[in-house]
Design a protein around this nucleic acid. Sequence first.
DNA 1: GTATTTTGCGTAAAGGTTTACGCAGATCCT
DNA 2: AGGATCTGCGTAAACCTTTACGCAAAATAC
Lengths: 344, 344
Amino acid sequence: MEDIKKESKREVTIMDVAEKSGVSIATVSRVLNRTGRYSDETSRKVLAVAREIGYTPNYMAKSLKRKKTEQIALAVADIGNPVYVAMAKAVQQVVKEHGYRLVLLSTEALASEEYGIIKSLSKQYVDGLIISPLLYSDEHRELIKQAARPVVVITGSESDPDIDSVLVDSSQGVRLAMEHLLGQGRSRIAFLNGRPDTVPGVARLNGYYASLIEHGLPRDDSLVFASDFTLAGGYQVAEEILSRAKPDAIMCANDLMALGVMRYLREQRLRVPEDIAVVGMDDIEHGASSFPSLTTVSLLAAERGRMAAELLLSRLTSDEIQKPKQLQVVPRLIVRESSVVVKG
Amino acid sequence: MEDIKKESKREVTIMDVAEKSGVSIATVSRVLNRTGRYSDETSRKVLAVAREIGYTPNYMAKSLKRKKTEQIALAVADIGNPVYVAMAKAVQQVVKEHGYRLVLLSTEALASEEYGIIKSLSKQYVDGLIISPLLYSDEHRELIKQAARPVVVITGSESDPDIDSVLVDSSQGVRLAMEHLLGQGRSRIAFLNGRPDTVPGVARLNGYYASLIEHGLPRDDSLVFASDFTLAGGYQVAEEILSRAKPDAIMCANDLMALGVMRYLREQRLRVPEDIAVVGMDDIEHGASSFPSLTTVSLLAAERGRMAAELLLSRLTSDEIQKPKQLQVVPRLIVRESSVVVKG
DNA sequence: GTATTTTGCGTAAAGGTTTACGCAGATCCT
DNA sequence: AGGATCTGCGTAAACCTTTACGCAAAATAC
């Protein structure tokens, strides 16, 4: 039983095509890229030979020379969250229309991962980056400003004026939802936050507090809970919310946690919305088809993805320097069954 | 108002580091890659300079020379399907442990996309590919065999013996579920397929038919429907299923469609499982927390992802040629509320 | 003390492209 | 017919690394 070493079959290069068709590599390159001048006859010959011997360009070499990869990256915290999937799909569509490819990176909410991506971005396999960081520290901002490729940030309501950003005020979104709940006669509204050290975590909690103040309600920290933005996380913390806060409504910082909470409530034979109203945020597809369907606040993830992609592409294709842009989108309340008692 | 052209600030290269630290580029490269021989003193100096002037390697040049990118790709049909997300997460974890990065590609179920990826794979920005094709034609197989980088296919129950594959017999999975439904006393079981021209579409429909034969039931094509494996698709076709087939159970080819169907049933005030039982397939997280929770068949997506990743990495790291492997996983029935009537 | 090995580092080639430049021949103008 | 312009193509440099090879100096051996 002998070990057979891999024979490293040499790749077929542009030189092979050139030789076999009796022209120079420059000509082959011109034909293949439809650039410069060449006759119809040589074009036909070169293309025929290329197909015959199965030539495909080496993108490493190509982009080393061109300083372009025709790829862009989207870095999100957790691809398990449908809201990022929706964002990714929107980005994908836009970049594809422009002949770019999308590379999806999931950072698992690790700042170190994010730093690494931004830092080595300069010479990575992408021409630009869209990043939606869960955390958005000074270090992020510093790295992004120094990054050697265009970066667009999708984040909360405030960014750095020197950084291209697509913003949404999710604190405002929470206020919309709170207003709705209060309007439905709920008075003891618990708040289930995600990780409180993250951008959305901070913003949404602020929205909750701001809303209480607006309505002259007392701030009661025993009504505030935190989990991790996942369905399982919402499910786990639900018991504690019920036993400790005894609320008549639960405002959740995102839809996944809201669905987790509703699952627990159902298991406890509690009726939503009759016993407890539940509201989420993000407007993921599953919220529309859950039972009861979930009242939520849309932060227009797809729209923001589209805007970010278009902004990034405009940076890549134009070679004039333009002032950094700050685009904004406004949250929208979507009322469904989980928060409105229908009188039979 | 004048157009300011981007000044293309020259990247800092290994030559800059070499010059500033008074050594040759070879030495810098050795220090940076911890390879070959160099003294402690030069190491310190080089590293200091590199950090000072902010050097980061150009991966294009590096991989052109090394013929390695330290990246692998996972191509799936639809990243909007949570089952692929679960798969991706498992792959991500494995490759990360080995110092590789995962690039996620969503083909939107287009065979042409898949062909393109496999073809140009040889000189793309990845060292290997894991692909879970919705369609799996002869052309796929041919291209995969000729691909210049290792490819692992995640697909149904049969592949090519010359291709590294991770398999699961989803037809068997459907039979498990059917057996369960029949055991619950259901007799008029409709089948909601996904796209029937796909690998899973064919397999699952076959499983349905096989199951009927096993139990001596007549084949009734008016009970068979097709959609597109999405939640919205399941929702849309549900009305037709009800009006045309009048079933007492609906076997869905995947969980997303099952959730869509359940949503429609609820809107129609039909009780699941009392009026109609519903079973899905894939075991996505949302199925466990839907109401009622969804009986399903797990095809062990995460496990298959893990296996595929490990297989691919073993191909990449060992340089002995080994016979292609066919790994298999067996489906598992998961009974939940949507198919079992509890007597109160 | 010389002979051998080890150490540290530099030179230069290679990896596969794209592209600026230049040259010869064909075409056009007057 | 002589000059200018256009056309098609080749030569060679550049993109930034890694690495085989070789050489001088230092360390070790006897």
